[in-house]
Every structure is written in C-alpha cells, then in structure tokens.
C-alpha cells in the first residue's frame, strides 16, 4: 500500500510502530480476487473484507470496460459476474428482488450469475475467481 511504502521516516519510534500495525491489519483484511475476462485474460488483485466486487474493480482501477456503469445502484447489469457453483451456493445472501430484476436484463445470464456490486467480500471468499462475461460493448472499438 502507498502508505507503508512512503512511510520510511524513522524520526520517531511511534511512527514506525504505527506503520507496522497498519500493515498487519491490512494483511488480515485483504482477500485475493481474480477476474477472468472472456478472452481468457486473468486479472489478479486484492480487495478488502467488506468491499463489494465492484469496489474492488474501482479501487484497483481495473481495466474492465463498461463495468459497473450505474455505480452500484442496481439500475444496470454491467457488473454481471459468473461464479462457480459452490461459490454461488456459499454466498451468505441470496440475490434480492432488486438484483434479480436487473440480472434478468444481464447479457449471457447463467444459473450462477450475480451482480458484482452485490457480492461483499468475506474472508471465506479469499482466492475468489469470477468470470466477467462478454458484453455487447466488447464488440465495439
């Protein structure tokens, strides 16, 4: 994280200590997430526990075109991701009616489709792999 990288000042002990605790805390909270794009490209990244998949894409500046156009307000389906069956089943929350209504409009809907803005990361999801389906946008230049 930028904070720990830049914190190379040793002027006071307390600062050093603080940096190290931050690091530890971050390590605990982070989980690995891999986005697999339709063309097979894998984007491996990290997200904080409590973040949604959409947050992960935004915070890490991931280059997935058109992803999350409505910014998590459940008015589009561009953050559509496809999960593995066991992951889909293990998620603590079923999709809400609002999410289902939008999923119905998703392109290439599957049985294990969810909207990324509605999946909140937990420790259990460490190593999560999700497939980002092709969108109609990809056909455009």
């Amino acid at each position: 994280m930028p904070k720990s990288d830049s914190g190379t000042s040793f002027s006071s002990v307390s600062q050093v200590i603080r940096i190290s605790t931050t690091k530890l805390a971050l390590k605990e909270e982070k989980v690995k997430v891999t986005f697999i794009l339709c063309d097979g490209k894998r984007i491996e990244t990290e997200g904080k526990v409590g973040d949604t998949l959409l947050d992960v894409v935004v915070n890490n500046d991931l280059n997935i075109e058109g992803y999350g156009a409505c910014e998590g307000t459940l008015t589009c389906s561009t953050c559509h991701v496809i999960l593995k069956q066991d992951v889909y089943d293990s998620l603590p929350e079923q999709p809400s009616d609002e999410e289902r209504d939008m999923l119905d409009l998703a392109y290439g809907l599957t049985d294990t489709s969810r909207l990324g803005c509605q999946i909140t990361l937990t420790k259990q999801l460490d190593g999560l792999e999700v497939l980002v389906p092709e969108t109609i946008n990809d056909a455009r230049s």
Binding site: I82, L103, D104, G108, L109, T110, D111
Partner: peptide, 17 residues
C-alpha cells in the same frame, strides 16, 4: 465473440431469463 463458457441456460427459478 460469444464467451464460450457463458451459456444462457434457462433454469433460473423465477427470473425472466
């Protein structure tokens, strides 16, 4: 280029697929 693994199977229980 249709994503090969994305098959629109129509088994969502309540949804309009």
């Amino acid at each position: 280029t249709q994503c090969p693994s994305v098959t629109g199977s129509g088994a969502r229980a309540r949804s309009t697929n």
